[in-house]
Simulated scan of single mutants.
Amino acid sequence: MFQGLNVFKAAHAMATHAGQRQTLVAQNIANADTPGYKAQDIRPFAEVFDGDAASGMRARRVGHLNAPDSAGNLPTFQSESPTDPNGNSVSVELELMKGVEIKREHDRAIAIYKSSLSVLRTSLGRV
């Protein structure tokens, strides 16, 4: 009955996106001294969500349209930031700022989930 509530799906998607983006930021920081390494990132969730809503088409399963693969990986892009003399484009300061932004996105997703769960419980008469 309550399996198709979009607010829970959106909160899950936000949290999953934040986790995937945090993984890339951690990889960037880990490779900050690797010669030739290019910093990677994925588009922010708002851009991904707006892009899906504007087209009117959504991937409903793996392999449908341009759906992420079975691991749930989103397409990455390489940062266009200036490179060091060794060809590395990672700026640790920028990556740390991205990490803070991502934490806020994840906290927002959890807050949405908890608030929606609270509303659902209240509507069922449970507190």
Rank of each mutant, 00 (worst) to 15 (best):
M57V: 15
L96E: 03
P85S: 14
H12D: 05
E93M: 02
N66M: 02
N28Q: 14
A54Q: 15
L65Y: 07
M57T: 14
T16G: 03
F77D: 01
G72I: 04
G87F: 09
R58D: 06
V90E: 01
E47S: 05
V92F: 03
N66F: 05
L94W: 06
G19A: 12
T16L: 10
D50C: 02
A30L: 08
A67F: 11
A15T: 04
N31E: 00
A26Q: 03
D33V: 00
A15M: 15
R43E: 15
G72R: 10
F49S: 11
N31V: 01
G51Y: 09
V48W: 12
D52W: 06
Q22I: 02
G63D: 04
L24T: 12
Q40E: 06
S79C: 02
G19F: 11
L65V: 02
G87V: 07
E47D: 15
T23D: 07
H64A: 14
T23E: 10
S70H: 11
S55F: 05
D52G: 05
I29R: 07
A30I: 06
Y37H: 11
G36A: 07
A53H: 10
I29C: 04
K38R: 14
A13G: 07
V90C: 02
N73K: 12
Y37P: 09
R21C: 08
D52M: 09
R21M: 08
A54F: 02
S89Y: 02
A54K: 15
E95Q: 15
L96C: 06
S79Q: 09
H12P: 01
N31P: 00
V48H: 06
G56C: 10
L74M: 14
D33T: 03
R61G: 11
S79L: 10
P44L: 04
E93R: 11
E47F: 03
A18C: 08
E80D: 15
T34D: 14
E93I: 10
A39I: 03
T34F: 11
R43Q: 15
S89H: 04
G36N: 07
T76E: 09
S91Y: 14
Q40I: 06
A30E: 01
T16Y: 00
A71T: 11
D41M: 11
V90H: 05
S91W: 11
R61V: 12
R61N: 13
D50Y: 09
R60N: 13
V90L: 07
A59D: 04
A30V: 06
A26F: 03
M57Y: 15
I42E: 03
G19H: 09
H12I: 08
F49P: 02
A39W: 01
T16N: 01
G87D: 10
N86E: 08
A39D: 05
V48G: 03
R60M: 11
F77M: 13
A18H: 02
I29G: 12
N88P: 00
S55E: 05
Q40N: 05
Q20A: 13
R60H: 10
N86R: 09
F45I: 06
Q27P: 10
F49V: 08
G36D: 04
R61F: 13
G19D: 12
L65K: 10
A71K: 11
N28F: 10
Q22K: 07
A46R: 13
Q22S: 09
F77H: 13
Q20V: 05
R60P: 00
R58C: 09
F45P: 00
G63N: 09
Y37F: 15
L65P: 04
G51S: 02
A26H: 08
L96H: 10
R43W: 03
S81H: 06
